[in-house]
């Protein structure tokens, strides 16, 4: 629900820190690891979770997340399967708000209205659709609003200032600020990201989470000083890839504990 996302950003703010937003790809490295990974992310200190919905043609993703997409697609993981994983994670006690992230076509194939309804029912809180800018999202945004899930818009360094207000007005939980022109896992978050956030800030009060090019402890801390949320994706996929399948949950949890500098046991 949008409400659960808003509450989590407010809670982090109340504690004087940025929310840590962690991305994993559903079905990667193997479908039965996804639920344990979601729980491990939360245990490690993730405030918000992005669950990647696999797609054959992830054209805004760099090599790392492309690989994860390929593996998950090959394993036959569908949007319906993603919802099943969310449902199971909730049954096992996941309390962090969870946003489904991916591309438009799998949602269209499932049916936009049904996707929003079933996502809400499964316990998901929102959507980030990389290739669905607000201008094209009329019907889907309405479906999200009707079912109480959040449509999270993106703002990039190339977004005209004149457009920022319009894009921001669509947000009801947070805004995804893309830190660099590029794909995921590409260039490191640049120092000027603070200025980009400040510019967006002039157009909205909604929390801003910054992603793309954030992986090290130092980068997480630096972005956390200028934005309400810090998003990490490729580095988590890399941690999953960095050893045995059985060890992936421990590695991811250790990574999140390290970069957030804390652990929220029993959160």
């Amino acid at each position: 629900m949008s409400e659960r996302l808003r509450a989590r950003f407010a809670e982090a703010k109340g504690e004087g820190r940025a929310a840590f937003v962690a991305y994993v790809m559903a079905g990667f490295p193997e479908p039965d690891q996804t639920v344990p990974l979601l729980l491990g992310l939360e245990a490690g200190g993730a405030d918000v979770i992005e669950l990647g919905v696999p797609f054959t043609d992830p054209l805004a993703d760099g090599a790392t997340i492309q690989r994860a997409n390929e593996v998950a697609v090959a394993a036959g993981v569908t949007f319906a399967d993603c919802l099943g994983m969310v449902r199971e994670a909730r049954a096992q006690g996941l309390s962090a708000p969870l946003v489904l992230m991916g591309y438009d076509n799998p949602l269209l194939a499932y049916g936009e209205e049904r996707a929003a309804a079933d996502a809400a029912d499964a316990g998901a809180d929102g959507f980030i659709v990389v290739d669905l800018p607000p201008d094209e999202a009329g019907a889907f945004r309405k479906a999200c609003a009707d079912h109480g899930v959040s449509f999270v818009p993106l703002i990039a360094p190339t977004t005209a200032e004149s457009r920022m207000g319009e894009v921001a007005s669509v947000a009801d939980s947070f805004i995804y600020c893309v830190s660099v022109t590029g794909t995921t896992g590409g260039a490191a978050v640049p120092p000027e990201v603070g200025e980009l956030v400040a510019t967006i800030r002039q157009h909205t009060d909604v929390p801003i989470a910054v992603g793309f090019g954030v992986s090290t402890e130092e980068q997480v801390a630096r972005v956390g000083r200028v934005a309400e949320g810090v998003i990490v994706g490729s580095a988590i996929i890399a941690a999953i890839e960095g050893g045995s399948v059985e060890g992936c949950v421990d590695r991811v949890r250790a990574y999140v504990e390290r970069v957030t500098g804390r652990s929220r046991e029993g959160a």
Binding site: A60, D104, D131, E136, L154, I155, T158, A160
Partner: peptide
């Protein structure tokens, strides 16, 4: 038709 693109590319298309 339409324009189903990442936000980064919106300005370039306009």
């Amino acid at each position: 038709g339409g324009r189903y693109i990442p936000e980064v590319l919106v300005a370039a298309h306009e």
